[in-house]
Write a protein that binds this DNA or RNA. Structure first.
Lengths: 129, 129
DNA sequence: GAAGATAGTTTGTGCCACGTATCACGTCAA
DNA sequence: TTGACGTGATACGTGGCACAAACTATCTTC
């Protein structure tokens, strides 16, 4: 199953390349992606990314310093913070997602329609067994 | 093609988990993998990994400090250095590869034989169009 | 042999991730 | 109600990873 590993590196290269066009790391892209339809607290962000909460502080701070993300105090919990995209961040997130989709579909151009369908169907089975 | 991206993260998580069992990062695992059947110079290592030569110095030094890898002066080029696995490094590389193979095949257990064959066949088409 | 190319290292910068400690706020029980 | 404990977030220190620019030492070429 070496092919699967190689393929994953290929995909990661694509993500890194798209990110690099906007000076974003893969993890920053993922952060923006998570925030597209959510306004989670720091802890929740960490769970989505599989990271410790102490890692999130810096991650969000760097994004905030670039004006992509915004911290607002939680209305229900005096300790908490809600993280949300700024308009600029949302623009970047949408643009990045489009580019990624384009590059990935371009990667799968070598497959014909039935193959592609078959492939993604198998992939989603792997993800949700 | 979101499934492909998700799948790649899933695979990367597996690689990171296997690495973590031996205190290895993904990049260190890749380094050991490259050296299994080669004795390249620093520059060549960089090309395999897609990294700048200045990144390789530290990578190899950290691995060398742990006794996994060895630098020897190139016999043909006074400037050059050849990187090779130590016995301990080779053991780790083989062990790691076995674990990765096991975890990946375990991941694909949800597919039956024909599906698995189909899937890897499509994956390798994606890799070498 | 001198000029330029090449292999590696060094240094400085920044991101990322972790563990630990700390602070502030919430919650729960006595 | 107040004290003990749990929880959300940050601060700090450490270390790996990656890059660019500058540097050293050795080819290579003319």
């Amino acid at each position: 199953m070496d092919a699967l590993v190689q393929l994953s590196f290929q995909v990661q290269r694509i993500l890194a390349a798209v990110g690099a066009e906007h000076d974003l790391s893969i993890i920053q892209i993922r952060l923006l992606g998570i925030l597209r339809d959510r306004q989670p607290g720091m802890l929740e962000v960490g769970q989505h990314l599989g990271l410790d909460k102490s890692s999130i502080t810096g991650l969000v701070s760097r994004a905030e310093k670039r004006g992509l993300v915004q911290r607002t105090p939680s209305p229900h919990d005096g300790r908490g913070v809600l993280v949300a995209l700024t308009p600029a961040g949302r623009r970047l997130a949408e643009q990045g997602e489009m580019q990624i989709t384009r590059r990935i579909t371009e990667l799968t151009k070598v497959l014909n329609a039935t193959q592609r369908k078959e492939f993604t169907q198998l992939a989603s089975v792997l993800l949700n067994p």
